[in-house]
Design a protein around this nucleic acid. Sequence first.
RNA 1: GGAGGGAUGCGAGAGUGGCCGAAUCGGACGGUCUCGAAAACCGUUGUACCUUCUGGGUACCGUGGGUUCGAAUCCCACUCCCUCCGCCA
Length: 434
Amino acid sequence: MIDLALLRRDPAAVRAALARRGVDPSDVDALMELDAEHRIRLQYAEELRSEVKGLSRQVAAARKSGDTALAEELQLKSRSLGHDERRANAEAETVADEVRRELLVLPNLPDEEAPDGTSEADNVEVTRWWPGIEDGHDAPEYADFQRVAHWDIGESLGILDFERGARLSGSMFPLFTGWGSRLLRALSAYSLDQHVGVYTEVRPPTLVLTEAMTASGHLPKFVDEAYAVERDGLWAIPTAEVPLTSMHRGETLVESALPLRYCATTPCFRREAGSAGKDTRGLLRVHEFDKTELFAYCTSAQAPGVVADIRGRGEAVLRAFGLQYRVLDLCVGDLGLQNARTFDLEVFAPGVDRWLEVSSVSWYRDYQARRANVRYRPTDGGSPVVAHTVNGSVLGWVRVFAALIETHRQADGSVVVPEVLVRYVGTDRIETKD
RNA sequence: GGAGGGAUGCGAGAGUGGCCGAAUCGGACGGUCUCGAAAACCGUUGUACCUUCUGGGUACCGUGGGUUCGAAUCCCACUCCCUCCGCCA
């Protein structure tokens, strides 16, 4: 959520920043009015409370001096005042709830440098890479044998089994078998090894409390996107970002420990409720997929550097795999609710002839950390400051898997394993079993 | 799942209805002393919110309710931690 103090101090700036991403200025004004009303009611309730406390002290004094009659008179007075106070407090609390509710769904202020625009068509491509580009080679021409969709490759090599996956969990739950399972495991193992020493590896729980989902911004707005284990009040995480954001929920960190960096590979669960019927084939869009996430709590000054670092790590992995990719600077209209700035990494999958989003590197400013109440104490000794959070996928493995087997498919139908992955996979080539 | 014990400020730990936002000790920070340091002594040391702001007020003693003129203290529910038993990868 955004900073209410900022809204009070400079409403025009907040209105303008949010207008860039299509928020109606009157929504902002409505919130300000609610906030003003809350403060008036709060003040009134607190005054009453103060009087009750004063009377109570007088009761104590009267009893001490043995003046029972006076004490009882004061008690009576205080009792009725207490009723008023209770009511005033409840009223103030009701308004406070409304403010909170509005604040939770109000999007983050976009970074000034995020490009203008209203839809994904306005995203700005900032980088494109393919093998050999450094030596002046043109973009690759893909051979016919690379123009085979991964679901066909997967079937012929016996590494993907969508039919049996559906038997287990319904459609859009892929089943990786044999070398496929091995390759998938290799992808995240390789990636995690690249970040050792800089990002602390974590294996968090994948079922989390409502508080964790709210802190990262996935609730309340995206309830329909999440799988819920209602009986136990738990949610299946849509990304490791959720547990990583809440790891330090409610803590006050020390500035010298920042940036505090973590990486984690977890399964990610998404209902894809809004996209029923779209991209249902193969691995393009699935309900459960493995993803490696990099995450950092940092200061506002450190944030841009961390964004660049995570993005660079994502790009490095794609380059090591020899996959063509591009980086998009998301326009304000395509930015996620919580994000101030986002770079998407898209890998090219020649078999399906599409760019696949495999990473989103986002800077949240203090929007998530305020919800999660993660602050740090500045080295110079001032009061605690709300931290900034940055995260990005490195990478979403199921889609990388698709692009990889399509790109590296050979004329004989086998798939060559990228050099860096050979020791993780245990073979340099995946061939038909027989 | 069963039985018992516990949760208080940075840490340890007192407080069982009325100046308790909280004793005491320790830590940290500042100062006195010293050539310097140690020791000793003195002082400071939570967070959030409201405000008519050199000030005033409110909340917070695991969480949420309740009793009371008044709750860290009494009552109820829940959560987490520890010990033991059962079950289990």
